[in-house]
């Protein structure tokens, strides 16, 4: 016989209700003090936009889908190419020729059918960026070119959206996180995109797939921390990774009080496009 116990008037406490399947799927998160049930609920309600379904976006999308981020947007105009598969682990050989956003969506839903994926099979431009990012809580820049990086920065600053910036090249990568009002933006650090071919982006530069994986996963981690409130973000700091030296460094980033987009002296009031550098060797 069960011990008789006095019970308070029973009432439904449904706000935290997880199904047993959700408890199991997310148990490793829920056990963590810094995330817990509340943090997992925040992840499940969060909306993250990933711009670029490539080397950075691929691992980030996979981990954010697995983490149960409720809504994930993925933007990319390209189709899967054989040369992508060395690092863009969200796509498979059978996906060659398919739009990357479709392949990425299928992979995410295969991992976690509970989430919602929105696809944007188009280039992100000054025309469409503000309307697209407006619906999201956090934006992840997984693009490879400087015009896109400046566009994402400016639009996020103007729309007051937090975002993770990252770049990779050869054996190195770096990332920083912008949070409105809390730290420098990308344009505080770099005023203008470099002229085409001035820095090795299009020419003679490769990248190790795992470097893209490391940095893309760190971007996903920034999104998880922003959403759950756990720990310290990379605001006002640039995290750099040198794979050959097996070295991570964190470099403090000051704000530029004259920044063209995030300071009181703002001269940029609407997002605009720089000319996309086309490669001579194409």
């Amino acid at each position: 016989m069960r011990m008789p116990v006095l019970r308070a008037a029973s009432f439904e406490r449904n706000s935290m209700a997880f199904t047993n399947e959700q408890l199991e799927r997310y148990s490793r998160h829920i056990i963590l003090k810094e995330i817990g049930p509340k943090g997992q609920k925040k992840l499940m309600k969060a909306k993250v936009l990933i711009i670029g379904a490539g080397g950075l976006g691929a691992p980030a999308a996979l981990y954010l889908a697995a983490a149960g981020v409720g809504t994930i947007g993925i933007a990319d105009a390209d189709s899967v190419d054989l040369s992508n598969l060395q690092r863009q682990v969200i796509h498979s050989t059978a996906d060659i020729g398919r739009p990357k956003v479709e392949s990425a969506r299928d992979s995410m839903l295969a991992i976690n059918p509970e989430i919602t994926v929105h696809t944007y099979h188009e280039y992100i431009t000054s025309e469409n960026i503000s309307a697209i990012i407006r619906d999201y809580d956090f934006i992840l820049d997984g693009t490879d070119n400087f015009p896109a990086k400046f566009l994402i920065n400016d639009a996020c600053v103007l729309e007051e959206k937090p975002f993770s910036h990252a770049g990779i090249i050869r054996f190195e990568g770096q990332l920083m996180t912008y949070v409105p009002g809390e730290g420098p933006c990308y344009r505080c650090v770099f005023k203008e995109p470099p002229p085409k071919d001035a820095v090795p982006t299009c020419r003679e530069a490769g990248v190790v797939g795992a470097v893209a994986g490391v940095i893309g996963c760190l971007q996903a981690m920034e999104a998880v921390k922003y959403i759950t409130g756990a720990g310290d973000l990379l605001t006002g700091r640039l995290l750099t990774y040198n794979a050959l030296r097996s070295q991570f460094r964190t470099v403090p980033l000051p704000r530029d009080s004259h920044c063209a987009v995030c300071s009181y002296e703002r001269t940029i009031h609407v997002p605009f496009d720089y000319e996309l550098p086309t490669c001579d060797l194409k």
Binding site: I51, G52, A53, G54, G55, L56, G57, D76, A77, D78, D81, S83, R87, Q88, K100, Y123, I124, G142, T143, D144, N145, F146, A148, K149, G167, I168, I169, R170, E172, G173, Q174, V189, F190, P194, V199, T201, C202, R203, A205, G206, V207, V211, A212, L238, V251, P252, L253, L276, P277, T278, C279, L281, K282
Partner: peptide, 21 residues
């Protein structure tokens, strides 16, 4: 002293106009 470098993506010439890494 710190030197901060532009870092875009590891594209190779034939792919350099693409939108992602």
């Amino acid at each position: 002293v710190e030197f901060l470098y532009f870092m875009g993506g590891g594209t190779i010439p034939s792919l350099c106009a693409s939108n992602d890494l």
